[in-house]
Nucleic acid binder design. Structure first.
Length: 432
RNA sequence: GGAGAGGUGACCGAGUGGUCGAAGGUGCACGAUUGGAAAUCGUGUGUGCGGAAACGUACCAAGGGUUCGAAUCCCUUCCUCUCCGCCA
């Protein structure tokens, strides 16, 4: 969420910045600023009256309760009190209105983010690794996995419908190996603390990270209701939600920054708008595994921390010897809350193209303001909003695909990347 | 699921209608003392909002109500703890 005060006081500047991302979003700013001004006026009005009431009440406390003056004063205060309640109601409505509007305004893009409409305007900033060469036509993971009997889409559909997959044998084990490998790397070498958070969260947590109120249709919501007692939790779409909210409404000790967490969780997405895209295989699923990195930093260091976090995600691909490239997303392709995002795309020989396997974003104070995540740089200093960052490192299912496609052999078997062999207990996947 | 007890500041804990943003303690910060430290003493120590500031205002789980006035009384919800039941 943007800072209301800043929007009111620097409307032109904020409008210009947001226009780079979306003209439509920028148009909502003027009415917000108007309401912001109105809000200030209402606050002054309410507080002036409250001050009168408080002073009068103090006098009442000392007055003789039987005197006629007391009775008279009481009547007067009754009126004032009613007035205050009215005024407070108006203020609350104004406040609610402005919050409602502000809650759906996306973050301002960082100055270094290129302006663009969509994917095609993203900038490739670096490429790593050699694309493998094959003496045969490389297959896609669906074909490979199905032939090996380790990926089963039909049975998944029987149980759960479209966009689910059953992993058997070596694939299930590979998934688990990847999770362990990634977590070990991040905890032992990159300094992250491992977290295993709840997979069901309250709406407030989703509001904190920005999925709500605007993107409810992408989420799965539980509905256990009995006799008026609601149990309305959402399945997490990413570990970012519970992990970032770990420090919601907290004031962190500046000396402990940056705080770095890594978490494995399954992720659940209804992907309501994605009908027809990536229908085959496990690229786009309702449920998938992901290892996430989350960092809490000071504003001064968040850019450097963003580069660092991205490098941690890249390191996973380097160790697995999977070719990839890193793109700086343009304003039109960035997520709602991000101020700057790098996508890491892995090369999939079967598809003959790069596909997203990680997205690493700096959210600035956008999430911190929503979730009230603050820190104190000096022991007696003022509490300031922290910056939050997160990135996938990596999306496990897509990593599994990348391994199948990049390490496939002419006979349809798949060589296990060296670093995973201790976890897999074998060098080649030959079937279940 | 049944029965009971609670939710007060960084923490512990007092406070049953006005003088309470809240005693006392711990912790923390600064100062004094000391060769240095411990101990001791003194001072300070929440957050948001409005304001250039002075200051004002709001907040004692959350929301609503009673009252001129609520941390204190009433209602609802949420959460925590104890015992029993159920359960991986």
């Amino acid at each position: 969420m943007l800072d209301l005060r800043y929007v009111v006081d620097h409307l032109d500047e904020v409008q210009a910045a947001l226009t780079r991302r979306s003209a439509a979003a920028a148009e909502t700013l003027a009415p917000i600023a108007e309401l912001g001004k109105k809000r200030r006026e209402l606050i002054v009005a309410v507080e002036t009256k409250a001050q009168q009431r408080n002073a009068a009440n103090e006098a009442m406390a000392k007055a003789d309760k039987k005197s006629p003056a007391f009775t008279e004063k009481r009547e007067e205060l009754k009126r004032l009190s009613t007035e205050i309640k009215e005024a407070e109601k108006g203020l609350a409505e104004c406040e609610a209105e402005v919050q409602k509007l502000l809650a759906v305004v996306p973050n301002l893009p960082d100055a270094s983010v290129p302006v663009g409409k969509g994917e095609e305007d993203n900038q490739v900033v670096r490429t790593w690794g050699e694309k493998p060469s094959f003496a045969f036509t490389p297959k896609e993971h669906v074909e490979l996995g199905t032939a090996l009997g380790i990926l089963d889409f039909e049975r998944a559909a029987k149980i759960s419908g479209a966009r689910f997959t059953v992993l058997f044998g070596a694939a299930a084990r590979l998934e688990r190996a990847l999770i362990s490998f990634m977590l070990d790397l991040h905890t032992r070498e990159h300094g992250y603390t491992e977290v295993l958070p709840p997979f069901l969260v309250k709406d407030t947590a989703l509001y904190g990270t920005g999925q709500l109120p605007k993107f409810e249709e992408d989420l799965f919501k539980t509905q256990k209701s009995d006799e008026g007692k609601a149990f309305d939790l959402y399945l997490i779409p990413t570990a970012e939600v519970p992990v970032t909210n770990l420090h919601a409404e907290e004031i962190l000790d500046g000396a402990e920054l940056p705080v770095a967490y890594t978490a494995y969780t399954p992720c659940f997405r209804s992907e309501a708008g994605s009908h027809g895209r990536d229908v085959r295989g496990l690229i786009r699923q309702h449920q998938f595994d992901k290892v996430e990195l989350v960092r809490f930093t000071s504003p001064e260091t968040s850019d450097a921390q963003h580069e660092l976090l991205t490098s941690h995600a890249e390191e996973v691909l380097k160790r697995l010897k999977l070719p990839y490239r890193v793109s700086l997303l343009c304003t039109g392709d960035m997520g709602f809350g991000a101020q700057k995002t790098y996508d890491i795309e892995v090369f999939l020989p079967g598809q003959g193209q790069y596909r997203e396997i990680s997205s690493c974003s700096n959210y600035g104070d956008f999430q911190a303001r929503r979730a009230q995540i603050r820190y104190r740089a000096e022991p007696k200093g003022k509490a300031r909003l922290a910056h939050t960052l997160n990135g996938s490192a990596l999306a496990v299912g897509r990593t599994l695909i990348a391994i199948l496609e990049n390490y496939q052999q002419a006979d349809g078997n798949v060589v296990v990347p060296e670093v995973l062999r201790p976890f897999m207990g074998c060098e080649v996947i030959r079937g279940r």
